[in-house]
């Protein structure tokens, strides 16, 4: 796996894949895609990076432990659900607002943040699993 071509190409591939994962996640509400798929794509990007450059490099690049990212995602999803309580709606009721930024209408909603939470949970967990298995004996 440590061929020179693989090592050279993989950073570019990883960057593109991550970008793609964000794209897939954000468009998920209207077109095929969403947090689960995006998360899996992002996780495969990190797994790829781990195969080409070794697990420690990925961990340094990530800064946070993958499970911390997953925890953040769960918090985000739960928080997006809790926000509706502030507006006296049941837990997880979708709230929408359409502010205009630079003349372009932007759809902001709690389901969006919920989906981002899903994205982070799946990314974090799957990356954690992949890295744990890629690492040699006992290293995490």
């Amino acid at each position: 796996m440590n061929t020179i071509i693989f090592r050279t190409v993989s950073p570019v591939l990883v960057a593109l894949t991550l970008l793609f994962s964000a794209f897939v996640t954000l468009r998920g509400h209207n077109e095929p895609g969403g947090g689960f798929i995006g998360g899996l794509i992002a996780a495969s990007a990190f797994a790829l990076y781990g195969l080409s450059h070794g697990v420690p490099t990925v961990r340094r690049a990530l800064r946070f432990h993958p499970m911390e990212i997953a925890g953040f995602g769960l918090l985000l999803a739960g928080g997006a659900g809790l926000l509706s309580i502030v507006f006296a709606r049941p837990f997880l009721t979708g709230l929408w607002t359409f502010p205009s930024v630079l003349g372009v209408e932007v759809a902001l909603s709690t389901p969006l943040f919920f989906d981002l939470g899903v994205y982070f949970v799946v990314t974090g967990t799957m990356t954690s699993i992949a890295l744990a298995l890629e690492a040699r004996e006992g290293g995490v």
Binding site: L40, V122, I129
Partner: peptide, 12 residues
């Protein structure tokens, strides 16, 4: 869709 992801995590 969710089942696929969950069954994968359990498989792992």
């Amino acid at each position: 869709l969710t089942a696929i992801v969950i069954s994968f995590s359990f498989f792992a």
